[in-house]
Amino acid sequence: MSDAILQLTDVKTHFPIQTGFVFRRQTGTVKAVDGVTLSVRRGEVLGLVGESGCGKSTLARTIMQLVPTTAGTVVLNGKNLSTCTAAELLTVRRGMQMVFQDPYASLNPRMTVFATLAEPLLVHGLCQPGEVNARVAALMRLVGLAPRFMQKYPHEFSGGQRQRIAIARALALEPKVIIADEPVSALDVSIQAQILNLLSQLCRKMNLSLIFIAHDLSVVKHISDRVAVMYLGKIVELGPAADVIERPRHPYTRALVSAIPTPDPDVERTRQRIVLAGDPPSPINPPAGCAFHPRCPYAREICQAAVPPLAADGPTREVACVRLTEL
């Protein structure tokens, strides 16, 4: 795809498990991300959903090159990040920034808002020391904070305001891609809506691409253009957001959608819910074949035989399930 700003090809991130103190040896691998192929277009919001432990945060960190890729390539704006030198990486990273889940933990409590926002500008030499003040003020206005709070510390702000500071920090370097790892999970409903509005406004205004990671499907449906559903390190379904969530195809997506409680008592009390048994399996010893088969209500023997590839289902959808046509 020509307009893809970020292209992942068969990305794998494995962590070794080592035992022994004197004679360390590897006794296994955690396959946190196991063969993800994905592209993000310019100005697109891609939602990434899945249960905890499915590898969505590791995928985000892999894209940011915060953890090394075991195999596969991450290409940002035509540049392969896995082969970059450290010096090159510093400049390339300017093009993508991250917003973390917990704004209480991701901001340095000893740095004022000014110091937090000025640091990336000065590190990357993006503006003259004399202009810093004006740039920081502009950034604060961009995310809806009054510049007069510049000299305040994070603890003087509420959760929603802190998340705004974290977003301003990510925007300081004028990135092309923002990766937001559960940016609203720690916030109350009314504050959540404010941050979601801010993120989608910014994406439109600055033509940003956003990878939005969340476990709340209704939030993802609202903000995303496309959604990728992850299960145990692999993408099992990919397609336009409303389509995937209103007409899920993969059995896992169906269960996930059916588990969301709806704020309507009549609907809630009459509908059939697919309650999955058990927990997601361990990524150390993933089940053979389709990783979802032990919990899947439609599983047959064929599901244990081979890992189903992500295959096209219509022009815009991709689903990884061997029994798809029968369901």
Binding site: S158, V189, Q192, A193, Q194, L196, N197, S218, K221, P263
Partner: peptide, 22 residues
Amino acid sequence: ALQRSIPSMQAKGAELFTIPGM
């Protein structure tokens, strides 16, 4: 207001209703 600010109750892509202030 609380009910209106739930994302799943609102049209996709529209500006979410928010309760101003804290």
